[in-house]
Amino acid sequence: MTQRLRYIIFAAWVMVLASTPLWAENYTVRLAIIVAMYTALSQSWNFIGGFTGYPSFSTAAFFGLGCYAGALTQNAGLPVILAWVFATLFVGLFAALLGGIILRLRGHYFAIGSFGIVEVVRLVISSWGDLTGGGDGLNVALVTGSPNVVAQTFLAVMIAIMLIVFAVTVVVDRSRLGFGLRCIQQNEDAADMVGVNTTRYKVYAYTMSAMFCGTVGAAYASWTGYIDPSDSFSIIMTVKVPVMCLLGGVGTVFGPVVGAAAFLLLEEFFWTRFLEYNRAILGAVIVILIFFLPGGLLGIRYRELFARARARLSQPGAAT
């Protein structure tokens, strides 16, 4: 598939998501918001997990911090948009400071360390009752308007965030930074030896992977109007997001978009049809997909696949 065709399909997909209020009921609009939200998270993860090759499980920590940073500043009287911007910068700064320490770990150790951050931040937030409301959660001022208007507003917001992260991904992919991150991903010692400032580049990637999660978190808090620690720092989210990226194609521009869409549509499909076993079935599907498609859905050579299928069909006797 040519790069141009991919951009066209992506644009069409954005149009489909954006137009859901025109042709579908609120349930589907809600699904579209979730798709845009997870696409943004998955694209964010791609900076550190995909380009740089550091398996980060801190997504939920950044998302949750963004929820609280946005909600608290909003409740303190900051206009909604400024609260989101504040959450973005706050989470970005948090990750930049943290990155200098945690990015010294490699491989499994980094994965475990990044996972621990989710728990630490969750515990701090839920213990700091005076500020955060602790386990009781926190109410956020609701956006006024009918349910339809609210849904349309947040659909627009999530799609906008998704497009911003997409644009940043495209720029990074073509830049010196992206090239350096790929070098680190393939051989960090060699990257160091050719003159890549590996520590700085890794901190950049980690910060980029965090800050947009902060934006998404803050927007999510405004959307739902209520947040609590177990919802904001969900372990499921911290695992889901990397899986989406792997499913689509790790370290590519379009992988997270394809992966998030495929994952959420599959989840929806199994959820409605197999109410009891949907998680188990989805888990099995994911394992099979990742096992047989290490390059993700984008890694499949569709043309070869079609050619082989056609060859088999045209000479049925030869296929054994």
Partner: peptide, 26 residues
């Protein structure tokens, strides 16, 4: 030897030129 295994030969050398050789752009 320490190559970047999944990059092309050209990209491997370009990495040296870009970061170590201080070339302004790719």
């Amino acid at each position: 030897v320490q190559p970047f295994p999944r990059m092309t030969v050209l990209e491997n050398v370009a990495a040296g030129a870009l970061f170590g050789g201080a070339h302004a752009n790719l």
